[in-house]
Design a protein around this nucleic acid. Sequence first.
DNA 1: GCGTCCAGGTCTACC
DNA 2: GGTAGACCTGGACGC
Length: 321
Amino acid sequence: MREQVISPFPAIIRRYILEHMEYNMSIRAPEGFDFWLTARGSGWSVLAPFSIDEEERTLYRVLRRGSGGVVRATIRQEESSDLTVRVESREELNGTDLKEVKSVVGTCLMLDEDLSPFYSMLEGYSEFSWVAEIGAGRSIRCPTVFEDVVKTICTTNASWALTKGMTRRLCERLGDTYSDDSYSFPTPHQLAASTEEFMRAEVKSGYRSPYLVELARRIVKGELDVESWKKSSLDSASLKREVLGIKGVGQFAADNVLKLLGRYDFLALDSWMRRRFSEIHGEGREIPDAEIEEHYAPFGEWKGLVLQLDVSKEFLISRKR
DNA sequence: GCGTCCAGGTCTACC
DNA sequence: GGTAGACCTGGACGC
């Protein structure tokens, strides 16, 4: 559908509107899936090239297709359970392109993840009955493991404002341009072609810069296949050892990457979680990690997710429709 | 406006 | 195996 718009915008904007194509699709969501709770409940949804509109309850994502073109997806959920996805592109898209976008959206929203075993396990814990009631437990992940790892490294030893700044500049400086203010996330090749000096000066990723460039270069050289982790047959402890092989990835970051791979065996404790746990369960006193570990041990392979929900309970319930 | 302090995880060297 | 110090940015705060 080509839009014909007569607008007061400057020429460059008007040309953009006249040239972009729009496609609308719907995606069947799993039973009880709450799109906005999932999108707003995850910090990932505000890290470029994701963005959200609180008023419209909309998630945006700029993405680079396998063939190289850049599109922007606008994702919402109306009253029905179906998700609506509007895809904007400056090139004509065919069925294969749209199928690719649909698949990426499914990956980002973890639509393929079955949480019913998790909800069944929680049935024995009345203090967590709210989790299944509101359909909590899902979050946003990136289209690639590479992007998830890069962003996780950008969260380490950084305030949230700094993390947001680093990821935004990564897209602006190294990604592909979709419009004046939206860019795709750089591919491993794009990041590998950068330098530590450029990253320090332009992305302001500081001492993380050599780690990020090295990660991308190892992937490009074929020394490291992080995408294979999605379907790895390794047990979580062995997979975690592999993740820890990336420079810049320590205990917290490795646990977080595993969570994004759908494995919740580890806690991914950061300073905010420790503080929240202390407020909720320790009357503000400092609590050793071993004690937190012990607290969630009964939840076994789900303990990381239970901790995450436990410390975010108020926020999640307040975001529920 | 400037300087100082602090928060935020990981790495490396050292014991 | 455990610990101390360095790494870097941006926000808060005091002057």
